[in-house]
């Protein structure tokens, strides 16, 4: 395996040329020493794996206890029809290893339910997809205990969501200084600017940059489900335009509904808790969403897997402003808002 310490080699610089030009050598070097765990390699997991392994992360560990179903073939490109019935880990292993021989890979046929929690201590970051509510609550408890950043995600056909818990994260962003200087203080309920530094461009002295340090705070998954609200977080106009996908997804994550009517009623209650008007709920959307619960769909996975992988690479390498904390995607309108819940 490649040396995980020290400088990047000329070969590595040539291979990763186009991305080093984006995030710099230091970020690329940081990424090489990171250890990331992926729980479940379904459709979104497949996209995340492709992106993260290509990026040149140091160590990537994939855990999945399922066997390949025929249905999986429709949305998971590491699989082929001969793989049906095999353990998924056995089916995908070779193709992932071939993707980037420089990444240290590990594979486990193991369910998240049967793992000793100390195992998770080994990782700098954990991504889990397609878990049920109890599993998500449990894994988040563990990541909180060991202070590990966590990404959760799942698909519902044309709709999908990402939940992020980085516990507390200081990000550093640089931007051109505008006429009005950036001030320290809270910019939203979860984000506070704690430090601003200015820097003159060494080529063009007219240009002044601000280096802004922001403290991002997060809620754990259970806390978010217990009291999700948008009160005082959005303007009236923004509240009016909130995507239907938000209350539907939160209802799905927090309630067990046995039929469409029940789901409808619970979603209306969720709207109230969020302080959005239930009248904006569309019957078509509810029915469509309900019919697609749990379905994996390749283009949606590409978008969600891309967004997660990009954020993971970012916080491991470059540390500019991370996702915070709940994102939903609507595959019909391509709407993808970010909420602080």
């Amino acid at each position: 395996m490649s040396s995980s310490e020290g400088k990047l080699t000329e070969d590595e610089i040539a291979l990763y040329d186009r991305q080093i030009r984006l995030w710099g050598l230091a970020a690329q070097t940081n990424m090489r020493s990171a250890k990331v765990l992926l729980i479940n390699i379904g459709s979104i997991g497949t996209e995340i794996t492709k992106n993260i392994v290509l990026s040149g992360i140091g160590h990537f560990h994939i855990m999945d206890a399922s066997k390949v179903s025929e249905e999986d073939l429709g949305s998971q490109f590491f699989l082929s029809c001969e793989d049906v019935g095999k353990y998924k880990i056995d089916a995908v292993r070779e193709r992932i290893m071939d993707l980037n021989p420089r990444v240290e890979l590990q594979f486990d046929i193991e369910s998240v339910d049967s793992i000793n929690e100390d195992f998770f201590k080994n990782f700098d970051l954990i991504i889990a997809t397609e878990l049920n509510r109890e599993q998500m609550l449990k894994i988040n408890q563990i990541t909180r205990k060991f202070n590990i950043p966590l990404y959760l995600s799942g698909s519902n056909g044309l709709f999908s969501y990402i939940f992020v818990d980085l516990i507390e994260f200081k990000s550093e962003d640089e931007k051109l200084k505008s006429i009005k200087a950036t001030e320290t203080g809270y910019i939203s309920t979860h984000r506070e600017i704690v430090h601003v530094e200015t820097r003159q461009d060494d080529e063009d002295p007219e240009k002044v940059f601000e280096k802004i340090t922001t403290r991002n705070t997060y809620k754990h998954f259970g806390e978010m489900l217990l009291s999700p609200t948008l009160e005082k977080k959005l303007t009236k106009r923004q509240l009016k335009r909130v995507s239907n996908v938000l209350p539907m997804t939160l209802t799905l994550l927090s309630q067990n509904c046995s039929n469409l009517d029940e789901f409808k009623n619970e979603t209306i209650k969720m709207c109230d808790r969020l302080t959005i008007n239930p009248k904006s709920l569309s019957g078509d959307y509810l029915e469509q969403f309900y019919n697609q619960i749990g379905l994996e769909f390749s283009p949606v996975s590409a978008i969600i897997g891309g967004a997660i992988a990009q954020d993971v690479v970012n916080i491991l390498g470059k540390r500019s402003s991370p996702l915070n904390n709940f994102i939903v995607f609507d595959g019909i309108t391509l709407d993808m808002p970010i909420f602080e819940l």
């Binding site: 186009r18 991305q19 030009r21 984006l22 996209e47 492709k50 992106n51 290509l54 990026s55 590409a302 978008i303 897997g305 891309g306 967004a307 992988a309 990009q310 690479v313």
Partner: peptide, 10 residues
């Protein structure tokens, strides 16, 4: 032009 997998995938 810098280019990365994730933007292309999205």
């Amino acid at each position: 032009i810098p280019a990365i997998a994730t933007t292309n995938a999205i």
